[in-house]
């Protein structure tokens, strides 16, 4: 039960990432942060956040039935 709740939270997080991808709050801001335009730094951070989210999906929402299928075919 707990796992399925985490799974759905992670699916919702994917939708949230789509919304966060539209960074209209930096739309007109050419300022530099750590030497790079803020709009670019935001999207670099977005890529890192996606890697973290995908790692959580792999850990908590992995389609484990596919692993079983693999074992079956090996047995055959």
């Amino acid at each position: 039960m707990k796992n399925s709740r985490i799974r759905w939270i992670l699916y919702l997080a994917l939708i949230a990432m789509y919304l966060l991808h539209k960074d209209f709050w930096f739309w007109r801001n050419p300022a530099l942060v750590i030497g790079l335009p803020v709009g670019l730094v935001y999207h670099i951070a977005f890529c890192v956040a996606m890697a973290v989210l995908m790692a959580m999906l792999v850990k908590y929402a992995w389609p484990s039935q596919l692993e079983i299928e693999k074992d079956d075919s090996v047995d055959k």
């Binding site: 991808h21 999207h43 890529c47």
Partner: peptide, 12 residues
Amino acid sequence: GVFALMGSSSAL
């Protein structure tokens, strides 16, 4: 903006 358009959208 091209990074957001094609780069980070691919990452998603």
